[in-house]
Amino acid sequence: MKKLLFLGLLSLSLFSSCNNDDDNPSPAGPGTMEIEFDNVAIINGIQRQLSLKEVGSTDYNYENAMGQDFNLTFLRYFISNVVLEGPNGERFEDPQTAEATSSSGYYLVDEATPSSQLVKLENIPAGAYNKISFTVGVSEEGIKEGAAGGALDPATNGMFWNWNAGYVAIKVEGQSAVSAGGAIGNTIDPENEKGLVFHVGGWKDIEGTAFVNNNQTLSYAFDVSAKVADDQAPHVHMVMDILQLFTGQNEIDFTGNNNVHKPTDGKSMAENLGAAFAFDHIHQ
């Protein structure tokens, strides 16, 4: 009886996965999945699209948990080491390559460039996936490959530290009514009297030293499984709540902490990243 039921299920699933070509009963081939990183501000439980302001703007459209008004002018972060897992042992590791003219598996998400917020994963074995993990930042494996192109090109990504050589995991810049100014970043200069700059970098893990590795590897469960096959390309929405960057594990006070450029100074925001990112929904 069990066997019969199993056969029945099998034929059912074969039928559904081959509905484009009933004459070909071969198992489904690999497919693609799009992961959208939507940067948002969740205020009173309502999710709103992040809205960047002009450099110098005193229109402060957000408020941190300490009641300090602020806006953002720049938001950029790296996503790498993407791994998908499923309930039946499915596992997909997005391959990473780093060559002089191109790289793959390293994604630079830039709020100012909507296309950069779509991460397209390819050649995923057919199956159901209900968990994603990724690293915010570029870990040691990416750095020991040396100079690489694409998202890793240090001349174009605006995310490379020369002095403590490596890629910054996340850069957040803007202005706050309570900032003391003097900050310096990609969009903020010291003359900007209200500047806020958070460059969260640092990737070295050396035992017995003070080094801080701010790359965060985060895992999220989906509410339903995303089904991947050669004819099924799910679209997964992740959100990143910029308000959570400044609260959660560590409250960030813009009066005393408005110009972050060192790994130890960036640690407090790095520890908030886990709560800032969240799974939102899937379009199957």
């Binding site: 750095i143 040396g146 100079a147 490379f160 020369n162 050589a165």
Partner: peptide, 12 residues
């Protein structure tokens, strides 16, 4: 010792 790969040395 701030740089750990030769490729990144000239950038400094």
């Amino acid at each position: 010792g701030g740089v750990t790969h030769l490729d990144f040395v000239p950038i400094n």
